[in-house]
């Protein structure tokens, strides 16, 4: 038993940018309830330095929180050449939409491509299932 187990996993505030992915979109056309769609959707792409700060490894799960909402998704190293510490990428999906505020400041357009979250290791936890998001 190590002392580390009594320490809370570090939290990291990140800005999320959403994007489209042809493979995930094609999986959606087949069925949004298939494993393949979850596998390609429930992910967050992080800068390697942010992965280190979270004390996690590529492929482990993290909790992504925004206000009262949270989802558990898989963390992946983004693979982008440019460093992007503080910014993480999520593919447009029910998992990313779960974290978006409905406050549009009266415009009717939610902030789909630029919102703040808090990320923390969810070691051992499973990815949130699509039907559990609600």
């Amino acid at each position: 038993m190590g002392f580390g187990q009594f320490l809370a996993a570090p939290e990291l505030k990140l800005t999320i940018v959403t994007y489209r992915d042809i493979f995930q979109n094609s999986a959606l056309e087949v069925s949004r309830f298939d494993e393949k769609y979850e596998e390609l959707s429930a992910i967050i792409k992080l800068d390697p330095n942010d992965i280190s700060k979270l004390v996690i490894k590529d492929g482990e799960t993290v909790t992504v929180k925004s206000g009262a909402e949270k989802v558990v998704v898989k963390a992946q190293i983004s693979g982008y050449e440019e460093k992007h510490e503080g910014v993480a990428y999520m593919v447009n999906s029910p998992w990313s939409n779960a974290l978006i505020s409905d406050n549009t400041h009266g415009t009717g357009v939610p902030s789909f491509k630029n919102f703040e979250v808090v990320v923390q290791s969810a070691k051992g936890e499973k990815v949130t299932g699509i039907k559990e998001i609600f």
Partner: peptide, 27 residues
């Protein structure tokens, strides 16, 4: 819309009488 809208408004939509017309099963 239950997939594509922010969760708080999607939850409200799920609570009111709702009709869905589509070729495929969806949220």
């Amino acid at each position: 819309p239950l997939s594509s809208l922010p969760l708080p408004v999607a939850r409200y939509l799920a609570d009111i009488p709702l009709i869905d017309i589509d070729p495929c099963q969806n949220l």
